[in-house]
Design a protein around this nucleic acid. Sequence first.
DNA 1: TGCACGATGAAC
DNA 2: TTCATCGTGCAC
Length: 183
Amino acid sequence: MRKLGRSFYCRDAVTVAQALLGQYLVHVTRGVARGGRIVEVEAYLGPQDRASHSSRGLTPRTRVMFGPPGHAYVYLVYGVHHCLNVVTGRAGQGAAVLLRAVEPVRNVTGRTQGPGLLCRALRVDLRHNAHDLTGDELYIAAPARAPAVAIVRRPRVGVDYAGAWARRRLRFYLHGNPFVSRP
DNA sequence: TGCACGATGAAC
DNA sequence: TTCATCGTGCAC
């Protein structure tokens, strides 16, 4: 496994989103490494994207999204679940990719099909907000052998309020993978 | 200072 | 279809 470096994230969100499929998300806590294969993601493009949190502009919460790429943007939804994003593009752009589902690979208990379940299973919460993904605690790595993958494009989930942006096909997942949240 | 509202998941 | 539950952003 080879950890993804900064340059991986310094690309547009759509490119990074698709490139993330099949990569391994790893979280090391107290010597225990938990890992899952990323099978479903969504791209959020920036302030112009009405479905993106960054469409509100630079606020205390979106500060991380507008920061340098390769960092984790973690937030709480519905006061209950956490969602993990990776910041992409250039600093100031406000783009990110939401990790929606992983396939359990190592030391993962519980379900992982959905952004909230993924965070629970991999023990990711608000403490990881702004965390540098090129570090040794929470990172993404390329598997030794990456099989060819068929990618499906669909509209994003739960963003009906975003008008035309809700219809953009910015959700990507691995075709036929049983760990996708909503095939 | 108050309030409406979620990039969800689970129960009914 | 309803609800849990709380941080955020914006109105007052």
